[in-house]
């Protein structure tokens, strides 16, 4: 099965793209989860769908091909992330309100562009649930570029992103410019979501950002450890998900998420096992 992925060009594109998003989605997901912004990922993925639908629409109606749906999705996602930040500022006491507003806005626009483009087709289905076969070389290069940018910026601003996530007030007092750093974070999140949609699909992209983090959170001692473990779990889920998706002809979004959930359940089991073992040892060494 793995041999197929190396032999056929289109599968190799998918496989390489999968490996890339298996790194960047859990990487950004780590910050998203600890800042309790998991739902923002969901809202942004629906805005991205609107952008993709817009891209498909202009492709179909005006035969414009230089803006691929990935690029228009990315543009919508970034604009959506800026709106979320503005709304969170307007509704200071009800910051979570920004999420349903942006999410429903995204779905509303998607419906409009989809019907303008004469309704559902396989392209759209692929964007909703991911696809093993739809990744073009062009997509691969776009996603590679985004991945390099994301890795570079997270690497350069790691200590600021980490410090701000833990304690915003203290970060501000110590002289970190919280606004631009937060802005950087939200833009990176928007880019990662747009990039991941090719493989996992709009509906499940937030799962690839959060489930590996949820699993590693239970096992890791520190933040860096959690980050690397999340990436390992993310890669495992993507590789196994792509192979099984291909083998059973299921959109990989579904298989990747189900495997992520299995990993999560195993991690909960391992943690329980560890705690029980420690308790037993305490009983033996104790009175």
């Amino acid at each position: 099965m793995l041999a197929d992925f190396l032999e056929y060009d289109f599968l190799r594109n998918t496989f390489l793209t999968g490996l890339l998003i298996g790194i960047i989605a859990p990487l950004l997901g780590t910050f998203v989860v600890v800042r309790r912004l998991s739902l923002i990922a969901d809202a942004l993925s629906h805005v991205t769908l609107a952008g993709i639908a817009f891209g498909l629409f202009i492709e179909k109606k005006f035969a414009i091909t230089f803006i691929t749906p990935i690029y228009s999705g990315m543009a919508f996602s970034v604009i959506g992330s800026i709106f979320i930040e503005k709304l969170r500022g307007v509704y200071k006491a009800y910051q979570e309100l920004a999420i349903p507003i942006i999410l429903s806005g995204g779905v509303g626009l998607s419906v409009i562009f989809i019907s303008l483009a004469n309704g559902f087709n396989t392209d759209l289905f692929n964007y909703l649930f991911g696809s093993v076969s739809a990744v073009s070389v062009k997509d691969l290069y776009s996603i590679l570029t985004i991945s390099v940018i994301v890795l570079l910026l997270v690497g350069l601003f790691y200590k600021e992103l980490f410090t701000l996530s833990f304690d915003e007030e203290h970060a501000k007092i110590s002289g970190i410019h919280s606004k631009p750093i937060h802005f950087l974070f939200i833009i990176l999140t928007a880019l990662v979501i747009a990039a991941s949609i090719r493989i996992v699909g709009v509906l499940l992209v937030s799962a690839l950002m959060t489930l590996p983090v949820a699993a590693s959170m239970r096992l890791a001692k520190g933040f860096k450890q959690m980050m690397f473990l999340s990436i390992a779990f993310g890669e495992l889920a993507v590789i196994m998900g792509l192979i099984s998706g291909y083998y059973f002809s299921i959109p990989p979004g579904g298989t990747i998420v189900v495997i992520s959930i299995v990993i999560l359940l195993l991690s909960i089991g391992i943690k329980k096992f560890k705690i029980n073992r420690i308790r037993k040892q305490v009983n033996i060494n104790g009175y």
């Binding site: 309790r36 601003f157 600021e160 996530s165 833990f166 304690d167 970060a171 110590s174 520190g222």
Partner: peptide, 24 residues
């Protein structure tokens, strides 16, 4: 603070230096 935040003592104390070390 968020008690579930997975950071070691070392990592938390290191945050004190973030601003002093400076960007990049």
């Amino acid at each position: 603070f968020n008690k579930g935040f997975p950071a070691t003592v070392f990592e938390v104390v290191s945050m004190g230096l973030t601003a002093k070390i400076g960007y990049l």
